[in-house]
Amino acid sequence: MAVTALAASETRRVPIRLRKLEDERWLALVLLMPTAVLLGLFIAYPFAEGVLLSLSSAKVGDPGEFVGLANFAKLWDDNIFWTSVWNTFWYTGVTTVFKLGLGLWLAMLLNRHFKGKAIVRAFILLPFIIPTVLSTFAWKWMFDPTFSVINWTLFKVGLIHARINWLGDSDLAMASIMVVNIWRGVPFFAISLLAGLQTISPELNEAAAIDGARPWNRFWYVTWPLLLPVTMVVMLFSVIQTFADFQLVYVMTGGGPANATHLFATYAYQIGIVSGLLSQGAAVSLAMFPFLFVIVVVQLLYIRRVETR
C-alpha cells in the first residue's frame, strides 16, 4: 500500500517526457544503452573495420581499394599460413590436455586438508598473476642456448653433453612454448576446478566409500561427472585464450625459427604490422574466426547438455 501510494505521488511530479520510462520497453532500452555503446565502439566497430580491411588492399600509407576475397585466396596458397593453422590447433590441443590434467591433479591435492593450505593456494596462483610478458622473458632466459639454466642442470646431472638449442630447433621451440603456456595456464585450471570441487558435498564421497567404491571409482563415478560442467566452462575459456595466444610466442620465438612456431595471432601481426600489409594481416586474423566459432559452438552445446542432465 505504502509503496503504491509513494509511486503515485512520484508520478505526479515527474515531467511527461520521463514518464515514458515507466514503460518497461523504454526503460530496458535506456538501461541497455551504455553496454550497447561500449560493445559497439570497442568490439563491433573494430570487427567490422577488420572485415572491411581484409577485403581491401590496404598497406601502411596506402588506404587501398576493395579487392574482394583476394587476400583470402592468397592465404589459401600460403604455406606459412597453413603452418600457423596447424600450429595453433596443435598448440591449443596439447596444452589444454596438459593444463586440464595437471590442473585437476593440483585441485584435488589442494582440496585436501593440510597445514599451510591457504599459503600454498596463494602461491599456486603466482604464474597466473605475474604479467605474461615478464614471466615469458624469464622463461626465454631459461631456454637461452648459452645461459640456459635447464641446459646447465641437465649437463651437471650428466644427461647431456652438448648444449641444446631449445628455441633454435623447430620442434623443440614448439615444445618449449607449450611448456611455458602450460606453466602459465595450470593455476587457472587448478583454482577454478578447486572451486568446482568444493561445491561437491564431501558426503557424496563418503557415501560412495561406504557403497564400496575404491578411490579411482569414487573419482570416476562421482567427482568427475559432478565436476564436468565446471570443467567444460574452464576448458572453453582456456581454449579461446590459447587459440588466440600472442604475447607468449611473440616474446619467446617471434614465430621462429623459420616461422615454425607461428600461431594465427603472431602471423597476423607479422604480416599486418611488421610487414605493413594491413589487409592481409586482417585476413589472417579473420581466418581464425570460423575455426574458433566452431570450437566454441560445439563446446557450448556440450556444456548445455551436461548442465541439463
Binding site: 558435498s201 558426503e203 557415501a207 566409500a209 561406504i210 575404491r214 562421482v222
Partner: peptide, 15 residues
Amino acid sequence: MDRDIAMVFQNYALY
C-alpha cells in the same frame, strides 16, 4: 567399504 555397513546421511547424500 570393507565393513559391510550401510549409512543413511542427514542430507541424504544421493548422487
